[in-house]
């Protein structure tokens, strides 16, 4: 089903339909994440991917034309690059441990301690919150800084453009 949506996104020329299909794709992704018991990530995917991104795309669409232009060049080179990259990535997964293998290195390093000691040490039953905010506090500080930087970047870009257009009118 997600493959169908992806193909539809690639084929469609009407950008409004593409934005809505993107939202549908995010919701499908969220259901997959729920099936994988990653409820926190599913919630983020549903709210960020399907909610805010769709709204931002729509507001950007309001500024642009709603029909995509015919591509000027043939799509064969990008297709080859995409297929080659996909093949390399698929080849890379062969080296990974089997799915949900309890002996995989990622489950042996610090994860057992988080699971066994997390609730006692932090008093927080949701292990995702405990890891995110406490054990991995530095990483989350970095993530917040990334969001901050993205926001400042957008402010710097769009605000200057707005001032310039205003100056042109005078």
């Amino acid at each position: 089903m997600m493959a169908v949506v992806t193909v539809a996104i690639a084929v469609r020329r009407n950008l409004f339909a593409v934005v809505i299909l993107g939202g549908i794709y995010s919701f499908l992704m969220a259901t997959v994440l729920v099936a994988l018991d990653a409820v926190d990530v599913a919630m983020t995917e549903a709210s960020v991917g399907a909610g805010i991104s769709t709204v931002l795309f729509l507001s950007a669409l309001f500024l642009a034309k709603s029909e995509e232009m015919k591509p000027l060049h043939k799509p064969f080179l990008p297709l080859v690059v995409a297929v080659a990259t996909g093949a390399v990535l698929a080849y890379g997964t062969l080296g990974l441990p089997a799915f949900s293998d309890p002996n995989a290195p990622i489950h042996q390093h610090v994860a057992p301690r988080y699971i066994q000691e997390g609730e006692r040490e932090t008093g927080v039953p949701n292990i995702v919150t405990a890891v995110l905010a406490s054990y991995r506090g530095y990483d989350t500080l970095g993530e917040t800084t990334v969001v901050f930087t993205a926001g400042v970047g957008v402010i710097a870009l769009l605000r200057r453009l707005r001032q310039r257009t205003r100056g042109d009118k005078r």
Binding site: A42, S47, G51, I52
Partner: peptide, 18 residues
């Protein structure tokens, strides 16, 4: 409620902005 169920700052921030 992020301490007990799914959720936290990122999700709550996005929902309130939405």
């Amino acid at each position: 409620h992020g301490d007990f169920g799914p959720g936290g700052g990122f999700q709550a921030g996005v929902i309130s902005a939405a």
